[in-house]
C-alpha cells in the first residue's frame, strides 16, 4: 500500500517520502481500517522537525499522522464491539501512528463509530483536536458559568474547545486575529478578542480556566488573568513534573518562575498530554450528531498533495483543520 513516511528529521520536503509498504496486520485487539480520510496536526510538524525526538523517538521510516476515518475491513479475534463494515474514526495511539496510508491497524479501545451526520473528511478532522479540547477542559473541571479563556480560537483545538466550553455553559473569551473574528464569534464565543488591536490581559479578569494553546509567554501571562485558585491548563507550555516523569524525566522541576506564579495565585498549572480514547470519541460523536459541535475544516487535500498539506500546516495559518482525502 501507499504511505507517506518520515525518513529523517528536518525540513518537510526533504524528510517526507511516499513509499510502497506492506499492509499492517491486526493483533487480537485491533481493527484494520481502510482509510477514507486523515487529518494532520501541529504535532506531526513537530515530529518531522525532530522537536519531539526525546519524548517520542521515531524509527525511520515511519508512516506519519494520527487522525483517521474509514471503514473496518478486518478485526482481531478479541474485538467484539466493532463489525466488518463499521464506519469509524480514531486518534490512533503512538505505537500505531501512520494514517497517511491506505490502511491502519488500531487497537479497538481507541476507535469509535463515526458520527452519522458528517462526511469521512469531517470525521477525520475531529479526533486529536477534539480529544485534546475535551480532556483539557474536563481536567480543568469546566462547569456552567465558568469564565474560560481559550487562546487561538481559530485553530483546530481552539475552535473545538470554544464549542465544547459553550456546550458546558461556560462564558468563553478567545483570542484570534482580525480576519477570523467573525467566524470565531459564530462558533459561540462570548467575547472574541482581536489580538492585533486589543490586549487580552486588560479584558479578561478573574478567569476560572485559561486554556493555553500557544505556550511561550502565554503560559506565564495566564496567571495575570486567572482568578485566585484558578486553573491554567496548557498543551504546549512547559511540562509539569508528573508528565515529565511519565516521559522518563524523573529529575524535572517545573520552571521556578511558573511555580512562583502558581503559589502567588494559589492556582494550578497542568500540562495536558492528550490520550487516545474511543469512549471519549463516542461522547464527541453524540455532540456532533446533535450539532452542538461542528467540524471546522480549512482545506481538504488529495493524498498525492499530502506534502503540500504539511507545508500549509507548518505555516500555522490554518483556520480549523487540514484534512487529506485518501480514498
Amino acid at each position: 500500500m501507499k504511505a507517506l513516511q518520515i525518513v529523517k528529521y528536518g525540513e518537510i520536503v526533504e524528510s517526507l517520502a511516499f513509499n510502497e509498504i506492506s499492509k499492517p496486520t491486526v493483533q487480537a485487539n485491533d481493527v484494520l481500517i481502510e482509510i477514507k480520510a486523515a487529518a494532520i496536526n501541529p504535532i506531526d510538524n513537530s515530529i518531522i522537525l525532530g522537536n519531539l525526538q526525546r519524548m517520542i523517538p521515531i524509527p525511520f521510516p515511519s508512516t506519519i499522522a494520527y487522525d483517521v476515518s474509514g471503514i473496518v475491513v478486518e478485526k482481531g479475534e478479541e474485538v467484539s464491539d466493532f463489525q466488518i463494515g463499521d464506519l469509524v474514526y480514531s486518534r490512533v495511539p503512538q505505537e500505531q501512528m501512520g494514517t497517511l496510508a491506505e490502511y491502519v491497524a488500531v487497537t479497538s479501545a481507541a476507535v469509535s463509530k463515526k458520527p452519522g451526520n458528517i462526511s469521512f473528511e469531517e470525521a477525520a478532522s475531529i479526533p486529536l483536536a477534539g480529544l485534546t479540547a475535551l480532556q483539557t477542559l474536563e481536567y480543568a473541571g469546566i462547569k456552567e458559568n465558568d469564565k474560560v479563556l481559550i487562546h487561538a480560537g481559530s485553530g483546530g483545538v481552539g475552535s473545538f474547545a470554544i464549542q465544547y466550553a459553550k456546550a458546558k455553559g461556560a462564558y468563553v473569551y478567545t483570542t484570534t486575529s482580525t480576519a477570523n473574528v467573525n467566524w470565531v464569534k459564530e462558533l459561540g464565543a462570548d467575547r472574541v478578542i482581536d489580538y492585533k488591536t486589543e490586549d487580552y490581559k486588560t479584558i479578561v479578569k478573574d478567569a476560572d480556566i485559561v486554556f493555553d494553546t500557544l505556550g511561550g509567554n502565554y503560559s506565564s501571562e495566564a496567571f495575570e488573568v486567572i482568578k485566585q485558585g484558578g486553573k491554567v491548563v496548557s498543551i504546549v507550555g512547559p511540562l509539569d513534573e508528573e508528565i515529565a516523569k511519565m516521559f522518563g524525566m524523573a529529575d524535572y522541576k517545573l520552571p521556578e518562575a511558573l511555580a512562583q506564579l502558581c503559589s502567588a495565585k494559589e492556582a494550578s498549572y497542568k500540562f495536558i498530554f492528550m490520550h487516545p480514547n474511543g469512549a471519549h470519541l463516542n461522547l464527541i460523536k453524540t455532540l456532533i450528531e446533535d450539532e452542538t459541535i461542528k467540524p471546522i475544516i480549512d482545506k481538504v487535500y488529495s493524498f498525492s498533495e499530502s506534502i503540500e498539506a504539511c507545508i500549509h500546516l507548518a505555516s500555522g495559518r490554518a483556520k480549523g483543520k487540514i484534512v487529506i482525502k485518501i480514498n
Binding site: 477514507k36 463489525q83 463494515g85 464506519l87 452519522g116 451526520n117 462526511s119 469521512f120 473528511e121
Partner: peptide, 28 residues
C-alpha cells in the same frame, strides 16, 4: 448491514426501526 446478503423481512411488533443508506462521503 449494507453490503451483506439479505434474506429476512421484519414486522415491528413494538419499538422503532430505521433504514438508512450511507453515501460515498460517509453520511447517513
Amino acid at each position: 448491514r449494507q453490503g451483506q446478503s439479505v434474506d429476512k423481512v421484519y414486522f415491528v411488533k413494538s419499538g422503532c426501526v430505521r433504514s438508512y443508506c450511507i453515501d460515498k462521503n460517509g453520511k447517513e
